[in-house]
Design a protein around this nucleic acid. Sequence first.
DNA 1: ACGGTATGTGACCGTTCGTGCACAATGTCA
DNA 2: TGACATTGTGCACGAACGGTCACATACCGT
Lengths: 90, 90
Amino acid sequence: MKITSMRDLSATVRGRRQDLGLSQAELAAMAKVSREWVSGVESGKATVEVGLVIRLLAALGLVLDLVTDDPATVEPRVNLDALLGALRDR
Amino acid sequence: MKITSMRDLSATVRGRRQDLGLSQAELAAMAKVSREWVSGVESGKATVEVGLVIRLLAALGLVLDLVTDDPATVEPRVNLDALLGALRDR
DNA sequence: ACGGTATGTGACCGTTCGTGCACAATGTCA
DNA sequence: TGACATTGTGCACGAACGGTCACATACCGT
């Protein structure tokens, strides 16, 4: 599953947890976080700490794979529009 | 690149940024975060918000892929040892 | 319909985030 | 070696974290 937003992440977490037949409380105990925090992740809370997320994924038997978006790109390449836009109001 | 810890993530971010020929400041502007924050990520800070990390990876042209650790598993499967250990002191 | 479990949500609290700034340390290139 | 850019680190501040407790709602098997 490609993760480009918190929606993708939350959906994958919930689906995997249910596939494993775990409650939020059980998963929370395994990952050493609170049940409410798991609920937050599954509803797409974007401000959760990435370290805890990695722990959660490990408890679910999920591994993050980081791949380049554009396989053809070898030469250094910059999104100039994004860069200029971000720099405009500085 | 498989991401199982913050070390993996930070190393990948730094490598990719340098491949693109970007400074931390440029990358920070593109992802709309502070330069200091980027420095923290690249040094393995585990408490950074996952939403900002996703923005950063997008700016780097990187996509997260979430795959199951054990491809053979179809039936619900639980790491009972981990679960019991976590529940023990409750 | 009923009972128990599971999940969502809000408030409170102590802690820590992310930003911005300043300065030191490091790297780079002529 | 000497500018200059880049990166690391500490501080103060407002904002928000994650844990916990409480309660409401939703779900499920019988």
